[in-house]
Design a protein around this nucleic acid. Structure first.
Lengths: 99, 99
DNA sequence: TTTATTGGTAAGTTACAACTAACGGTTAGC
DNA sequence: GCTAACCGTTAGTTGTAACTTACCAATAAA
């Protein structure tokens, strides 16, 4: 789960996700829009794929990548869970001060 | 904004956030619960503070850290925005195939 | 079959993040 | 004023992530 955060923590990978959010794209297509080489993009896509943030399907010699909606779940769960806890703790501290 | 993701991408920092979500704590207190030294915790807290994920207040010689709820906003906005776009793009692709 | 297109992988380099040890600064208590 | 407790910062080391170049595999087209 912290894997997904680390994956999105890299600016290039975040940009890849933003591009793919617009529409599915092939590797070379992505590389043409980014300031890095195609192999670099390929390596980033591998990280994103392992984090369940993107999917890929074959199309001839091309590989079309798209967002994997399944990866979002754990992230949002984690955020909601701990921030709710933080707010509860904050309220509890305030309660101690005075009504 | 990708700063916040990078901050949460480190497992030690994620654990710090989890502990602070339970209740505000001092630096030494945190260090006693973690597998790293106190200076390391201090450096991690600096990163989390720059990412607006924690706040600190002075209490004598101690520094008490707590979650900063303000840091969550941009993260959730980013997630919602791009995943909504991804789902829309996904639906648009499906539409092209056949009704 | 040969040639071109498209991608993943390997090797090697470089920059940076994470850590510890040592030091200095600030507040509390005697 | 002196001592102790608590914390941030600096210096230095080490592991690893990100990148490019070069190479190999697979499919499409001629």
């Amino acid at each position: 789960m912290t894997n997904a955060f680390a994956a999105l923590g890299d600016p290039v990978r975040a940009e890849i996700v933003e591009k793919l959010a617009g529409r599915p794209m092939a590797v070379g297509e992505l590389a043409a829009l980014l300031p890095v080489t195609r192999p670099a993009v390929s390596q980033h896509l591998k990280v994103l794929k392992e984090a369940r943030l993107v999917r890929d399907r074959a199309d001839g010699t091309r590989r079309v990548y798209s967002i994997d909606p399944a990866g979002l779940g754990p992230i949002r769960e984690w955020l909601d869970r701990h921030w709710d806890a933080a707010l509860a703790a904050f309220a509890a501290e305030a309660e101690k001060e005075g009504p």
